[in-house]
């Protein structure tokens, strides 16, 4: 299909993008990789009057170290996230997760910032970002603010971003000594997750000292499986014990019924997948 006509601005700085958004109000949209926005426009589900393209803002792209954190620019593509040596060293969960997104073309166009801002409940990035406890840097007309992952996602396709704000970058605390894994379950190789589980595990010899588990597509936003995290703390690092702990993986979730799967099946699946993700993260 063909989108409704719109104006197009290729911004050359974050300030220019923010100013353009502020000037246009609700009718303007940021364009990042276009992998979510363009399908929506083509199906005429949305008809913004202005697109502000961030593709020409070099400072938004790339990965750098800043003290205890990695900083990943919002326009860094999924492919860059999955292959970056820095990400692989300090936040390997993001790298392994990013490699599971869509297909090669999507990974070369789609961006970290676009994925987080779009806040699709089936998207993989938000759960992984929550598991690494990322902090999001937002720029608006009144300057910048930092929002923790837990406060960024508000609801289905809704985030803390104001209409005139741009997600600039994401800070990821460097973590060492943790194992991690992203377990994605989908029907087709290039399809969205029916359910995904991100797990980070710190071991203390034969036991799990501490675990973070986050879930994709088990509610309107990525969820933290707090009951499971508690059950795993101190749990023996063996498959049977982990699987047993994972019986609570669906607690506090509210998955939907849709064409690909029922809520009931998702609640079952998340237990099996959590067992696999945690076991892999714990190295057993």
């Amino acid at each position: 299909m063909i989108p409704v006509a719109f104006d197009y601005l290729r911004a050359s700085s974050v300030d220019e993008a923010v100013a353009a958004l502020a000037g246009a109000g609700e009718d303007a949209k940021i364009l990042a990789g276009g992998q979510s926005l363009l399908p929506v426009l083509r199906l005429r589900l949305s008809a913004p009057s202005l697109l502000v393209d961030l593709g020409g803002v070099p400072e938004l792209r790339g990965v750098r170290e800043e003290g205890d954190s990695l900083v990943i620019g919002a326009m860094t593509t999924h492919d860059e996230v999955s292959t970056s040596p820095l990400v692989r060293q300090f936040a390997p969960l993001l790298a392994t997760m990013a490699a599971t997104i869509g297909d090669r073309q999507v990974r070369h166009r789609g961006t970290l910032g676009g994925s987080l801002s779009h806040a699709d409940p089936a998207a993989d990035m938000p759960a992984a970002a929550a598991a690494v406890e990322a902090r999001y840097v937002l720029a608006g007309p009144n300057g910048r603010r930092v929002v923790p992952a837990s406060d960024f996602a508000v609801d289905l396709f809704t985030t803390a971003l104001g209409d005139d704000e741009v997600l600039v970058e994401v800070q990821v605390p460097k973590l060492e000594g943790w194992g991690s894994h992203y377990e994605k379950f989908h029907r087709m190789v290039q399809a969205w997750a029916i359910v995904g589980v991100a797990a980070m595990v710190r071991r203390d010899d034969g036991a799990i000292a501490s675990a973070r588990v986050t879930l994709t597509n088990m509610g309107p936003t990525a969820l933290r499986a707090t009951a499971l995290e508690q059950a795993l703390a101190g749990c023996a690092a063996d498959r049977a014990a982990i699987e047993q702990a994972c019986a609570v993986a669906a607690e506090g979730t509210s998955p939907r019924d849709d064409l690909t799967a029922s809520a009931e099946y998702r609640r079952h699946l998340v237990q099996v997948l959590a067992g696999r993700a945690v076991a892999a993260a714990a190295g057993v």
Binding site: L43, R187, M188, V189, Q190, A191, W192, L259, T260
Partner: peptide, 28 residues
């Protein structure tokens, strides 16, 4: 394994794109 055209109870075709109607690719 993969394909099915689905009309919902109102007769709306709900598998109206390749997001919901899923022919396998070589990778599948």
């Amino acid at each position: 394994l993969h394909e099915e055209a689905v009309y919902d109870e109102s007769g709306t075709l709900v598998t109206g794109s390749f997001v919901d109607y899923t022919p396998p690719t070589a990778a599948d």
